[in-house]
């Protein structure tokens, strides 16, 4: 490549040979090192935007939050902040509101992730069969996911309204008592989980569908020939083949659920309330973080909650990593 582009070949023959051979090479050498370095650094330049932005808007805030979590700091009086070491964290672990939020977050995680992934699997299986207007249905299941989360929550809040809600109205028409969805420990969580399920089932179904289409058709044809029903095929062929995909979607959904915020915030239709119900019955960790930081203005304490959430997410991600590595090694070994 260094000799690929001799500059002005006609001129070099006209002038004295040694000089001609010397000068271009001397001129070319810095060029070529520059090029060599350049070539080596291009990939870094190309990925640099991500890291620059991540440092500015991801890493720095994260580290700054860690620092703030070690201080007692009122949002309106940053000057009066004082260093208290791990004080916020020790307070946190003896705070019943924190443990309540932890419990709510994990309960909501279980109540929404499990049915959501199960429905997604069934939906994907149906979408994978020969349907009329297949593309329409496949795109259709994604609609709840691209709808504004605020719009979804507002509509659901009306459905689950206390006195004039749709479900209460339906119950009333058949002579049953209306349900006060917001007030109950389980009814409120059911309502919120249903919003999450509604929003994410189609998204996961499409991921499953993609993975299903990668399964060789012969497996199904052979099974069909042996008389296996579609549900048996789902259970014995599709599911085992999808194991890594299921682990992936489970991880993504769990990480998303730890940060569950908008649904419980907007479901609480007591105006201006961020406490997740009168008994904090659906206050998630993210909601508690918001209440502490932006309502009670305890920035230090809020930051400590943020860091605990971060560490829990990391721990879950690490756990999921080892589990998926285990499963993929298993499937790899069996092949």
């Amino acid at each position: 490549m260094t000799i690929a582009t001799p500059a002005h070949p006609a001129q070099t023959t006209a002038e004295s040979a040694p000089a001609a051979r010397e000068t271009p090479r001397r001129q070319r050498r810095p060029h070529s090192t520059f090029r060599r370095i350049g070539r080596a650094t291009v990939p870094y330049w190309l990925i640099a935007p991500f890291f620059v932005i991540f440092t500015a808007f991801g890493l720095f805030p994260m580290l700054y939050t860690a620092w703030i979590s070690l201080t007692d700091r009122d949002m309106l009086r940053p000057d009066a902040a004082k260093f208290i070491g791990l004080g916020n964290y020790t307070d946190l672990f003896s705070d019943e509101f924190f443990w309540n939020a932890v419990g709510n977050t994990f309960l909501l995680m279980a109540m929404s992730s499990v049915p959501q992934l199960a429905f997604a699997l069934i939906l994907a299986h149906i979408l994978n069969t020969r349907l009329r207007a297949r593309t329409l249905f496949r795109m259709g299941v994604l609609l709840p996911n691209i709808t504004s989360i605020v719009a979804v929550t507002i509509v659901f809040s009306q459905i689950f309204g206390r006195q004039f809600g749709l479900i209460s109205w339906l119950l009333d028409t058949v002579g049953l008592d209306p349900i006060n969805w917001q007030a109950g420990e389980w009814t409120s969580k059911t309502a919120i989980a249903s919003m999450v399920i509604w929003r994410w089932t189609g998204y996961n179904a499409l991921i499953y569908l993609g993975a299903m289409q990668a399964i060789p058709k012969e497996h199904f044809e052979a099974a069909a020939m042996d008389g296996a029903s579609t549900w048996r095929q789902l259970w014995h062929i599709t599911l085992p083949a999808l194991r890594p995909t299921i682990a992936f979607t489970a991880l993504i959904s769990v990480i998303g659920q730890i940060q569950l915020f908008t649904e419980p915030l907007l479901f609480d239709n007591s105006p201006g309330s961020v406490s997740g119900g009168n008994s904090h019955q659906f206050q998630t960790l993210a909601l508690l973080l918001y209440e502490e930081s932006f309502r009670l203005h305890n920035f230090g304490y809020g930051s400590a909650i943020a860091w605990v959430m971060f560490l829990v997410t990391m721990a879950l991600a690490a756990g999921a990593y080892f589990v998926t590595r285990g499963t993929s090694r298993l499937t790899g070994g069996s092949r």
Partner: peptide
């Protein structure tokens, strides 16, 4: 060479543009 140079320039501009715009 020209292509590589342009690639470098593009990457550089992209970084600069993103930093500036933010």
């Amino acid at each position: 060479r020209a292509r590589q140079g342009r690639l470098m320039a593009m990457a550089g501009t992209a970084v600069l543009a993103m930093v500036l715009s933010t």
